[in-house]
């Protein structure tokens, strides 16, 4: 029954998935190394130096350590949910990668509603954190999970609202359409007319990935390690892997929605023509690396927010500002930009 053509198509998709997973997992592993090195330098330390030249083999040593450690399940834990929770977080973090284009011709699934699928994946991944926190049977874990629920629930709204401006400008939910629209538009990238939306999106991206300065769910000084307190071995590693993958997803989303993805703005090319010869993947890679660096930089610089400050900032500042951004985009659209 299965035709030869269908078989080839499935094989092609499998190869694409393998390539994307390989690249992203390697990047996630070395982002841990980069984070330790960069934060070390910013705090006048050296960071890891022992394993390999300049400590370059440190991620592999970490991986071996996590794999060989004992997987402890607490007595108080709800066994099934405790075992499944890290898998939920990791799965939905990886699913988000499938709708993101990496090159004009390289995308696993070019679906109609790419942006909405990423939002859906991000909102479903929260369940892993809440359930993991609750099923550990520890007070610190439960508090971390509840904080995470409140935080992500609140920050999903300004995130979606700031993306609404981008969608209105491009008249499409497809990420590749959004990138192409920016390349043809007057400003060359969405970040210039929608600077308010970009700032809101950046802040919400920090909150969605549970990174500093919004790392309240795993605040070391208040809750031992939040929802990861009771996890050990490879399951803890899954949580961390999911966190670093979602940093990459958010950076890719920022680059695609506000900085033109793999294209450079037209006015920059007229000022400096040799930039035309830079290959598209390199442009994307440099932009993504910058935002990953920004994630690490902010962690080393800013102190943590208090919980009520976090909530009031979301509801009293970010949501009105993102609505204002939406209105500005609507008027620009009417003006013909």
């Amino acid at each position: 029954m299965v035709s030869n053509n269908l078989f080839l198509e499935i094989l092609l998709i499998l190869i694409k998935i393998a390539v994307v997973l390989g690249i992203v997992l390697l990047h996630a592993a070395y982002t841990v190394y980069a984070e330790r090195k960069i934060i070390g330098r910013m705090q006048a330390r050296l960071g890891p130096t022992e394993v390999g030249p300049y400590g370059l083999l440190q991620p592999i040593a970490d991986l071996l350590k996590l794999l060989t450690k004992e997987d402890i399940i607490p007595l108080e834990a709800e066994r099934l949910i405790f075992l499944v929770a890290p898998l939920i977080v990791l799965t939905f973090a990886i699913v988000n990668l499938s709708v993101i284009p990496f090159h004009p011709s390289f995308i696993i699934a070019d679906v109609n509603i790419g942006i909405l699928l990423i939002l859906a994946g991000a909102s479903l991944a929260v369940y892993g954190i809440i359930l993991g926190g609750w099923s550990s049977g520890s007070k610190y874990s439960l508090l971390g999970g509840l904080r995470s629920a409140a935080q992500v629930l609140s920050y999903e709204i300004p995130l979606g609202m700031s993306l609404a401006g981008v969608i209105l400008a491009a008249e499409s939910f497809k990420l590749s359409d959004i990138v192409n629209h920016q390349a043809q538009s007057f400003f060359g990238m969405n970040a210039i007319p929608q600077i308010l939306g970009f700032i809101v999106f950046l802040i919400c991206a920090f909150a969605e990935t549970n990174r500093a300065p919004f790392d309240l769910p795993e605040a070391e000084s208040e809750l031992v390690a939040g929802y990861v307190t009771e996890y050990s071995g490879f399951r803890m590693g899954m949580f961390f892997l999911a966190e670093y993958i979602s940093i990459y997803v958010m950076s890719l989303l920022i680059v695609h929605c506000y900085f033109g993805g793999w294209t450079l703005p037209g006015w920059l090319l007229t000022i400096f023509p040799p930039l035309k010869f830079v290959p598209a993947p390199l442009i994307l890679l440099i932009k993504v690396y910058f935002f990953v660096f920004l994630f690490i930089w902010v962690r080393a610089t800013y102190p943590r927010y208090r919980f009520d400050q976090l909530m009031s900032m979301c509801w009293k500042i970010l949501i009105p500002v993102s609505l204002l951004n939406f209105l500005i985009v609507a008027f620009l659209k009417r003006g013909g930009f």
Partner: peptide, 13 residues
């Protein structure tokens, strides 16, 4: 997004 992602998270909370 709205139902499974927001309303039911609120309920679990």
């Amino acid at each position: 997004i709205v139902y499974a992602g927001a309303i039911l998270v609120m309920f679990l909370f």
